[in-house]
């Protein structure tokens, strides 16, 4: 099977790329560990390739639930003080973040 050994292909570039996707910055040692862990897990997960899943529909949900709609009625009142109380930084009733536009 061609993709049997994807795990062996976890390169430094791949770990960096996954780090970007995951928004995680790994230090030198963490990065090496992450690489080893992921290779080992993927090697194990590759076991799934033994299964013939030709013609099987992927199952994301066990019950046949389609979109569930309800009226958009506000039931929970104004909670902005409680919400803002959790803000790491705030300014004038807003969440404060670093400048995003030049």
């Amino acid at each position: 099977m061609e993709d049997r050994k994807i795990a062996d292909k976890i390169s430094d570039e791949m770990i960096d790329y996954v780090g970007i996707l995951a928004k995680l910055e790994l230090s030198g040692r963490e990065r090496e560990e992450a690489k080893a862990d992921m290779e080992r897990m993927l090697d194990y997960i590759d076991m799934l390739n033994e299964l013939d899943t030709e013609g099987i529909e992927p199952m994301s949900h066990v019950f046949p639930i389609s979109n569930v709609f309800r009226e958009d009625i506000v039931t929970n009142g104004d909670g902005h003080e409680e919400t803002l109380a959790n803000a790491p930084l705030m300014k004038e009733n807003c969440f404060k973040v670093p400048r995003t536009i030049g």
Partner: peptide, 25 residues
């Protein structure tokens, strides 16, 4: 990290879809 990898383009079918099919089985 593992989750981001299995959902990344190029590996989505081989891992994530394969797992969902296994779930069906």
């Amino acid at each position: 990290m593992l989750g981001s990898f299995v959902l990344s383009s190029g590996y989505y079918d081989a891992y994530y879809l394969k797992a969902l099919k296994t779930k069906a089985l």
